[in-house]
Design a protein around this nucleic acid. Structure first.
Lengths: 203, 203
DNA sequence: CTACCAAAACTGACCGGTCAGTTCAAATAG
DNA sequence: CTATTTGAACTGACCGGTCAGTTTTGGTAG
C-alpha cells in the first residue's frame, strides 16, 4: 500500500523528475491542442511513454496535474523575464521583456493556447491558480512599466497596473495571432505591434 | 425515417427560431463557463427547457450546434458594429466601435470567453469556421483603421491589417480582464486602455 | 564485489459511471 | 395535414480513478 503521498518537490528521487518532465512535455502539447477536457489521461501517459498509474502516482488527479503544468510553465516564463540583462533605458528594458515573451510563446505555443483558454474562465477549475499566476506576471511587467513611467512623460489617466495587464494580454493574442494566422510575420513586426501599446502610453 | 434534413435557415418555420434562440442562450452560458467538451447535450437541452431530441432535430450534432452558436454570436456583434452612426473624425468612429465591442462582451461574457478559448486552437474542431469569422471582424475593424490612416499621420512600418488584428485581440483580453479581474474598472477606463493602441499607431 | 533488502517508482488490467448519438411512438402546434 | 417537439429507452464507446503486483534504486552488510 504505502500511501503514494506525492514526493516532496524538495527531494530529488532520481527518476521522478525525468518522469515529470516527460509528462509536462506530453501534456502541454496535447492539452494545448485539444483542451484539458478532451485529452484523456491514457493519451497523455502513452505520449509520455509512461503508464497511466504513474500519472496518478506523481500527481493525485488529472486536475492537479494540469494545475502543476500551469505553474511549471509560468515559472519558466517568469524566470526568463527576471533574468534579462537590464538596458540603459526603461523602454528598451520593457521591449526586451516583451520580446522574450514572444519567444517563449513561439517556443511553447501549446502552453500559450492553454493559458488564454483558461485564464478568464469563471468559474473555472484552475481559476485560483491562474489568478495567482497572472498576478505574478503582471507584477513583473508592472515593475518595468513603472520604471518607464518614472523616466518618461506618460498618460496619468491610466494606471501602470492596467497598462501591464493590457500589455500581457496583448502580447498573448499578438503572439498567438502570429503563430496561427500570420506565420509569415517576423518577430520584429510582432514586437513593433506590441510596443504600440507602450507608445500610446507615452505622452 | 423521414431524414430530419435540417430546416433551411432561409425558411422561418415559426417555433423553430424560438427554439434555436433558447438553445443559443442556454448553450452560450454553459459552454462559455465550462468549455465545449465539458458540457453535455442533456445539460444544454435541460437548461434551454427543450428535449434532447430537439437538439438533434434542429442541429445534426453537438459539434454543428456549437459551430452555429459561434456564427450566430459573431453575426450579432458584426451587425452592431456596422450599424453604428458614423462620427466626424475617423478616430472617434473607431473609438465608438471599440466601445460597442466592450459593451457586447459585457453583455455576453460567456461568448467572449468561448471565442478566446477556441480562436487560436490548432488543430481545432471549429478552426475553419473561426478563421472565417475572425476575418469578418478584422475586416470591419480594418476598414475603420484605414480611414484613420487616411486622416492622420500614422506609423507606416505597421500595416493597418496587423493593427486591426491587435486591436481585436486587445479588446478581447481587456474586456475579459475587466469582467474577471477588475469588475471595479469602468467602461471608460477600459476603453481608454484599448485606445492606447491607436494612440501608439498615430505619429 | 556481491548478496540482500526496503522503499520508491511504476505498471496495466479492471471497474463503475458517463455521455454522444440514435430511435421512435405519441403529443402538439400552425 | 404537416412540421415540430417530446420523452424515454437504449447502445456502445470511452474515461477517470484504483490497486495488487512488479521492477528499479540506492544503500548496507558480509
Amino acid at each position: 500500500m504505502s500511501e503514494p503521498a506525492h514526493p516532496a518537490q524538495s527531494r530529488r528521487p532520481a527518476r521522478t523528475n525525468a518522469t515529470r518532465q516527460k509528462l509536462f512535455d506530453a501534456s502541454m502539447l496535447l492539452i494545448g491542442e485539444r483542451g484539458p477536457a478532451s485529452v484523456t489521461v491514457d493519451e497523455i501517459a502513452a505520449a509520455a511513454g509512461v503508464s497511466k498509474g504513474t500519472v496518478y502516482y506523481n500527481f493525485g488527479s488529472k486536475s492537479e496535474m494540469i494545475a502543476a503544468l500551469l505553474e511549471h510553465g509560468v515559472e519558466m516564463l517568469e524566470s526568463r523575464l527576471v533574468s534579462l540583462s537590464p538596458a540603459a533605458k526603461a523602454v528598451d528594458d520593457l521591449q526586451e521583456m516583451l520580446g522574450a515573451m514572444l519567444d517563449f510563446f513561439a517556443e511553447y505555443p501549446s502552453f500559450a493556447q492553454l493559458l488564454v483558454s483558461e485564464m478568464w474562465r469563471t468559474p473555472g477549475e484552475w481559476h485560483e491558480t491562474l489568478t495567482l499566476l497572472r498576478e505574478r506576471l503582471v507584477g513583473v511587467i508592472g515593475g518595468a512599466v513603472e520604471r518607464v513611467a518614472q523616466e518618461n512623460q506618460v498618460d496619468t489617466e491610466i494606471t501602470p497596473a492596467s497598462v501591464a495587464g493590457a500589455i500581457l494580454g496583448a502580447t498573448f493574442v499578438i503572439g498567438l495571432d502570429r503563430l496561427v494566422f500570420h506565420p509569415d510575420r517576423s518577430r520584429e513586426q510582432a514586437l513593433a505591434v506590441v510596443m504600440t501599446v507602450i507608445r500610446g502610453y507615452l505622452r
